[in-house]
Design a binder for these strands. Structure first.
Lengths: 240, 240
DNA sequence: TTATTTTTAAATTTCCAAATTTGAGGTATC
DNA sequence: GATACCTCAAATTTGGAAATTTAAAAATAA
């Protein structure tokens, strides 16, 4: 999958300026993608060797991740990858719906043509990547565009905080979405998110608040329910 | 002002276990109380001397504060106390209303007698401290109990995330509430928050959702409007 | 005078070694 | 046998010195 010039530009524009920032992003990505498995201890010496960085930027990154709740930390007893449980899946889904519904409502109220254009553009870019059936470069592109689309929906809400929190919770949810995808890949059951996204776009462009929010709710509820199913059958992990 | 045994216990129970944690709390408190003024640069050497800690725990604390948005950080150019502007005051107020209204709604729906008791208890404790007219030990007690009361209102929402975010935004709002209090102390204009709190408690105990949310909205809107007024007249700062 | 380059001091960031803390396993005591 | 108390290796945490980067002042060129 080739990447457009604008995507490369975007990444270079905010390329990590410090080792701290770089290791933060790598750890963050590895946690979200399940490379570092939920609950696993994050020992400084191990990580220092594995990622080839000093202790200071490493700890700094872990502290940041801790306040984003992607890792847990208890004084003098080190850091761990934050576990994923039924309760947190439900909680994260509920909470991000609270924030995103509010932000979407505002966006629909005050969004201008530039906003509509962003929604249409990010949706189109997403629709041209097939929904990935396994991890790899394609899955990463899909994931990036998927997030870009959802954030575009909220981008006219005129609230930096709501966008920041939605971003935070999106990544939290990404963890269990990916966990689900990995676990049920063998079973072959797939959803059709393209249709769900199309419904959201249609409702949003019609400026139909109720329908938009219903579509978003249902979209996230499906994700949540599939994640809960995956969590209920941890045995499948053993199937290869 | 004496402190109850339970309050002391509470603090000792989660006393800082590391220097990192301790300096984090001190910085946080100093930022919220305006000791470290909005926009001021936070130079490592200065702070290291002032708070008598090493660089490592200091940076760690600053990183955490940065992801809580109490300080800003730009790579290689250090940290600053997050500025307070009209836009952020409005944004924080709007966003915390989104979260707190959702959490309050749920609490009213599912809260049991233990929750009602927490609301009544924290409200009573708060009502017995006079609304402070200047900074000092009393102001700190009032502030602690004020937060305890507001968090008690949400404490039955069954969402750790919503409580965490409400907590985060409460402290953000505390910054401009205190800023306002300091600036207009000379002018003598005061509000009567006790009445506002009473209205919230009454509505909540009646399980009247609409009235509860209206009372909370109005409570926070007053805070916001007074903060905006204070921001509009920065000249008053010069009066002493 | 204005613009560009060079220098330089100040500040941030990073590595690393020393100090501290934890928890497990062994030993003594009741 | 159970409990309390050491001992010690492993891991976290911390302080400071070295390396890097920034930004402002000085010098040079246009």
């Amino acid at each position: 999958m080739t990447r457009t010039a604008s995507e490369i530009d975007l990444e270079q524009r905010d390329a990590p300026r410090t080792v701290s920032e770089a290791i933060y992003r790598r750890l963050r990505s590895d946690i979200i993608w399940g490379v570092l498995v939920p609950g696993a201890p994050l020992r400084s010496d191990e990580l220092r060797r594995k990622y080839d960085v000093g202790i200071s930027p490493l700890r700094e990154a872990l502290s940041r991740l801790a306040s984003e709740r992607l890792v847990t930390s208890s004084g003098q007893r080190g850091f761990r990858v934050a576990p994923i449980g039924d309760a947190s899946v439900v909680d994260i889904t509920r909470t991000r719906l609270v924030i995103e519904c509010a932000a979407l409502e505002r966006s629909i109220e005050v969004g201008d043509v530039a906003w509509e254009t962003r929604v249409v553009a990010t949706h189109h870019a997403l629709s041209r990547v097939p929904f990935p059936t396994s991890q790899g470069a394609e899955a990463e592109v899909w994931t990036r565009r998927h997030k870009a689309f959802h954030m575009a929906l909220l981008s006219a809400c005129q609230s930096e905080w709501q966008i920041y929190l939605a971003d935070l919770l999106f990544d939290q949810a990404e963890r269990f979405r990916i966990l689900r995808a990995v676990k049920t890949a063998a079973a072959g059951r797939q959803r059709d998110p393209a249709k769900e996204h199309q419904e959201i776009v249609d409702a949003v462009l019609d400026r139909d608040l109720e329908r938009s929010i219903a579509a978003l709710r249902s979209h996230y509820r499906v994700t949540m329910e599939m994640a809960l199913e995956a969590l209920a059958s941890p045995a499948e992990e053993a199937l290869q």
